[in-house]
Design a protein around this nucleic acid. Structure first.
Lengths: 119, 119
DNA sequence: CCTTTCGCTACAGAATCGATAGCAAGACGG
DNA sequence: CCGTCTTGCTATCGATTCTGTAGCGAAAGG
């Protein structure tokens, strides 16, 4: 599976950073396709693997599986009989995403159609 | 250059989402390697391309260039005589990252060494 | 037994990223 | 004008990652 993320704990060196700063690990994991989206889609409550997959615009199960594994290892989500769901920590991250969502809406509102250049 | 992100305005369809929701565009862009990191490294003030590159653990200029271009198109950063820097919007995003940093530190503190499994 | 649903893996082709080299433009100094 | 130094940035190509499809083994229900 060529796991590029054998790491589990927050304080550890990751690709592109040996500072050991927890944020770097987070930036590294979140800076992968679908990670942020998965967290976002999990806000509404627990989801089965397949349901989650649908919500995420039919991500390939390969990647979804990888992301869920990483997020579980980081203790942000967990898997139970009723599918995947957020842990306490994960929920806190989710709140930040909610905040980001609000900001994004206002941001889009503000700059409306005045985008840069229209090819 | 095979630009996968010809889009500029917040309200637009992106890979993996046609909802038109600004957040989706954001998640899509931020969910690329180095994007979050670049924003983070720009908090300390304006940086030249090369300085920024060094800070980001010597990213390849190819990717850095792409990211900077996208972020500029989104109006989050700008380029002037003294290098790259954040715009008003970018700074707001930066604040969220600062918040994330704080959270990450406490998170790491809390779960300390009790990570899951050590190969 | 048969069917459905579950989480998840295999595999191959497509897209993205990474490392290195180098270019064109502007600013210096001589 | 010449050489050099720094700037932002592109070319190229091999390595990594993502996508799309098919399908497995286990569990649940009829």
């Amino acid at each position: 599976m060529t796991d590029t993320h054998p790491a589990k704990r927050p304080r550890q060196t990751v690709r592109g950073s040996t500072s050991g700063r927890p944020l770097m690990l987070l930036l590294d994991v979140l800076g992968q396709r679908w990670t942020l989206r998965v967290l976002w889609e999990l806000r509404d409550g627990r989801q089965s693997f397949r349901a989650l997959r649908e919500r995420c615009d039919a991500v390939s199960p390969t990647v979804l599986s990888q992301r869920l594994k990483q997020l579980r290892e980081l203790g942000l989500i967990d898997l139970a009989g009723d599918g995947y769901g957020m842990t306490g920590d994960g929920a806190e991250l989710g709140k930040m995403l909610a905040q980001l969502d609000i900001w994004a809406e206002r941001w889009a509102e503000a700059r409306g159609g005045e985008a840069s250049a229209a090819p």
